[in-house]
Nucleic acid binder design. Structure first.
Length: 796
RNA sequence: GCCGAAGUGGUGGAAUGGCAGACACGCCGGUUUCAAAAACCGGUACCCGCAAGGGUGUGAGGGUUCGACUCCCUCCUUCGGCACCA
């Protein structure tokens, strides 16, 4: 009988759906397990194979846990707001309100064809007012708590997209969407105070079971540095700098202010005023890309003013230079050219004095920035730099001139977007009352219909053109007021979606607290590491904030997070321009979902991803055909499995399970192949082998597994059958072949009973002619026996 | 530069202190075919050798151990994150 995957897959998908097999009873579940996959953005291009790879990794884990007896909840939804949709709409002229439902329908079809164990009854869509009502609600909660605030700030602006971007969306100084170099603009923006949680976000990483690569990216992004703030007297008053090396204070021979520093203009002497102003103007005109390029020649200008070094009492010049950034620390530094590369380069360029205050252990050429012994530092001479660091700050602290201080690289999260396709930020501006939040009862603030959503370069959202939307009444004084016209960042929508899955239809609450208590935090989450510092940081922040607000009962949203690798084609990242995009539809059609799933999981460990190859998928197709043939063409007999067949069966159960535990499904599948290769040689198959094989295969090839399991005859779906339990004793045969080494070198193998004792093993090993021969020359010093593994004779 | 991950056949990878290369792709040979494709069977780390056999081998070099792909140290390379961040 041929392997008719189309008929088999259609048959089982229909039966599963009829049985509502993938819709757990959230309230009644006894053994809840929340198995989450990343929130897909439903693009017009359809489901990307990389997305599918990630989802199948999640699904295989979910099916495994289901067989292990858990009530697995595996939800899905659509992250359909955002610039990506909007840009696509602007390019093709299709309104996102029209396009989005079509894209969602197509995604739904594709996801269903891949047989993911999804609970479709709880799907969410971020563009649904009943979803973004709660996005806006969270905004209100944060606002009440002081965690959402407005400020006029220099923000990253993409001139092509005509909107501001988060820092994370403009890495390297270019817009992540269109790669246009970004600019700085001063705009009134809404921010979430993620920096209030900087330390908690950092320390929280230590105890959580997340992929190391993700935690490392987050640590770097938070960028903690410990040091001190030190006060320098200047003609314009005290000037605070931040330094991580207060031990080098005696070597501070000048100071530098960022061009944007408020004191820069004030400090400049009459002769230098023009030069300083011009320098600041030039710095402001520079794009972020130019400014942040690290290998530029140092430039700067002297303010003419002098500051007093608090430890030496010496007067030192104050310069303005763009190598000091206004956004970090205090925007001003003390320069120690002897022990800081950048200060060194600057001092050389402008002829400023260099004083060494740290003696390295071994003399090194150039500028030394390591630890060492204090010199030229008054009473601190002779101390280690590490010790001196503490004492200098402590001593200055008594005089009120310094204090220990920690700074973070992390910036507050700018959520304002001057675009159309997002949830309106629920706030109004009243001439009398200022900014007023929309009351909870008036949510959602609906995104109005608007045929022309093009940005107009005014720096305002297209919504600002819609007077019917803008004009409103102040919730406080009932006077006329104007609505906020910015919409919120797409990352905000996706920072809480996993909460809504619990209660997607609840119109009264964001979710049912009883269900949250039962199902949260999420047990298992898999996704690409491109979200390490965006999505995953925002979710952690929001979870912590919602806990403080009293909405959630935990700090860490995801108990276990694992990254999945990337799927490439011919070694290259897939892209439309390269024409190497793999369409899941094509392969589901040609081979079926079971083959595509099994192939993707066979490529390697989930963390590594892999390179998609038509040849290799064909090999996997042959494997499933073979499995189908073995179990449908050979007679199934009721008799116990014994001997080597039993050993292989138990070893297979063991190794398949080990693969599941490590997300190395490739090992599980390889073991099934090995087992199948052996079964193919037998004339009959036992019912037990059929039952075990089907259950082990179920995650990868769920349709075929059910087709085979049906023959077992216990009237269950394979997912409802328990995970096969293996016996460690039976996973080893009665006799084992062990290695025989002499001085660590393999000299042969010998078969002995698995339970053989040392003496028996040694005598069997010595019986090998080759071993006896090699051993003859020298006296035996030692002999090692590792049960079931090897014997090693150590001689002469 | 700092932080993190990883280096194993022609390729993807397996083995995390005990027989390196499981399993698969590819390649070679065979069966089948008018032929090709497909399918099936066998072989396939490298070097020497007709063979039996011997030797070498997990990025490089040291170390620990009876025994190291695995643990430790130094270095190299690749990938990811951060980066004029004081």
């Amino acid at each position: 009988m041929a392997y008719d995957f189309k008929a088999i897959e259609a048959k089982w998908q229909e039966r599963w759906e009829k049985a509502r097999l993938h819709t757990p009873d959230l309230a009644g579940a006894r053994n809840p397990y929340y198995n989450l996959m990343m929130f897909p953005y439903p693009s017009a291009e359809g489901l990307h194979i990389g997305n599918l790879y990630s989802f199948i990794s999640v699904d295989c884990h979910g099916r495994y846990m289901r067989q292990k007896g858990f009530d697995v909840f595996e939800p899905i939804g659509f992250d359909a707001f955002g610039m990506h949709s909007e840009n696509h709409a602007l390019k093709t002229g299709q309104h996102p309100r029209v396009l989005t439902p079509k894209c969602i329908a197509n995604f739904t079809r594709q996801l269903k064809s891949a047989a993911l164990m999804l609970d479709w009854t709880r799907a969410v869509d971020t563009t649904d007012p009943e979803y973004y009502r709660w996005t806006q609600w969270i905004f209100l909660k944060l606002y009440e708590k002081g965690l959402a605030y407005e400020k006029e700030a220099p923000v990253t602006w993409c001139p092509a997209c005509q909107t501001v971007l988060a820092d994370e969306q403009a890495e390297g100084g270019v817009c992540e969407r269109c790669e246009t170099p970004v600019e700085k603009r001063n705009l009134r923006q809404w921010f979430f105070k993620i920096t209030a949680y900087a330390e908690k976000l950092l320390s929280g990483l230590d105890g959580i079971d997340w992929s190391e690569i993700t935690k490392s990216a987050q640590r770097n992004w938070i960028g903690k540095s410990e040091g001190a703030e030190v006060l320098f007297e200047t003609p314009a008053g005290p000037l605070t700098v931040f330094t991580t090396r207060p031990d080098t204070l005696f070597g501070a021979t000048y100071m530098v202010l960022a061009p944007e520093h408020p004191l820069a203009g004030k400090l400049a002497t009459p002769e230098q005023k023009t030069a300083v102003a011009e320098y600041a103007k030039r710095a402001a005109a520079m794009s972020a890309l130019e400014r942040e390029k690290g290998d530029r020649k140092k430039t700067g200008v002297d303010t003419g003013a002098l500051a007093v070094n608090p430890v030496t009492g010496q007067k030192i010049p104050i310069w303005v230079a763009d190598y000091v950034l206004s956004g970090y620390g205090t925007g001003a530094i003390m320069a120690v050219p002897a022990h800081d590369e950048r200060d060194h380069e600057f001092a050389k360029a402008f002829g400023l004095p260099i004083v060494e205050v740290i003696q390295p252990e071994k003399n090194v050429p150039g500028c030394y920035s390591g630890e060492g012994t204090m010199i030229h530092s008054g009473s601190y001479d002779g101390l280690s730099s590490i010790e001196a660091r503490k004492r200098i700050v402590a001593d200055l602290e008594k005089k009120g001139l310094a204090k220990f201080r920690v700074h973070y690289r992390l910036r507050d999260w700018c959520i304002s977007r001057q675009r159309y396709w997002g949830p309106p930020i629920p706030a109004v501006r009243c001439a009398k009352c200022g900014t007023v939040a929309v009351p909870e009862k008036d949510l959602p603030v609906r995104l109005p219909e608007m045929p022309d959503i093009r940005p107009d370069g005014s720096g305002k959202s297209p919504l600002a053109r819609l007077q019917a939307f803008v004009k409103t009444v102040c919730p406080k004084c009932k006077g006329t007021a104007e609505r906020e016209t910015d919409v919120s960042d797409n990352f905000f929508d996706s920072a809480w979606y996993f909460l809504r899955y619990l209660s997607p239809a609840d119109t009264e609450r964001i979710f049912d607290p009883a269900l949250a208590q039962k199902w949260l935090p999420v047990d298992h989450y898999i996704g690409g590491n491109e979200h390490a510092v965006l999505h995953l940081m925002y979710v952690r922040f929001l979870t912590m904030a919602l806990k403080e607000i009293g909405v959630l009962h935990f700090d860490n949203p995801f108990k276990r997070f694992r990254v999945n690798g990337m799927i490439t084609r011919d070694g290259a990242k897939m892209s439309k321009s390269k024409g190497n995009v793999v369409s899941p539809d094509e392969y589901v059609d040609k081979y079926g979902a079971d083959v595509l799933r099994t192939y993707l999981m066979f490529m390697g460990p989930v963390a590594d991803g892999g390179d998609f190859s038509d040849r290799s998928i064909h090999g996997v197709a042959k494997f499933l055909e073979r499995v189908h043939r073995i179990f449908t063409e050979k007679p199934i007999v009721d008799r116990p499995v014994v001997g080597d067949a039993r050993t292989l069966m138990h070893r297979s159960m063991k190794r398949v399970e080990e693969g599941f535990e490590r997300l190395s499904y490739n090992v599980s599948i390889a073991q099934l192949m090995e087992w199948a290769n052996d079964l193919a040689d037998w004339t009959k198959i036992t019912r037990e082998e059929l039952s075990v094989f089907a259950r082990l295969l179920a995650s990868f090839a769920p349709h075929l597994a059910d087709e085979l399991y049906e023959k077992v005859g216990d009237a269950k779906f394979v997912l409802q059958a328990p995970w096969p339990a293996w016996d460690p004793k039976l996973a080893v045969g009665d006799t084992v072949e062990i290695a025989v080494q002499v001085n660590g070198k393999l000299r042969g193998t010998v078969s002995i009973p698995a339970e053989a004792d040392e003496a028996a093993a040694f005598s069997a090993a010595r019986g090998l002619p080759k071993v006896a021969e090699v051993l003859a020359g020298a006296p035996l010093k030692k002999q090692v026996y590792v049960k079931g593994r090897l014997v090693n004779f150590v001689s002469g």
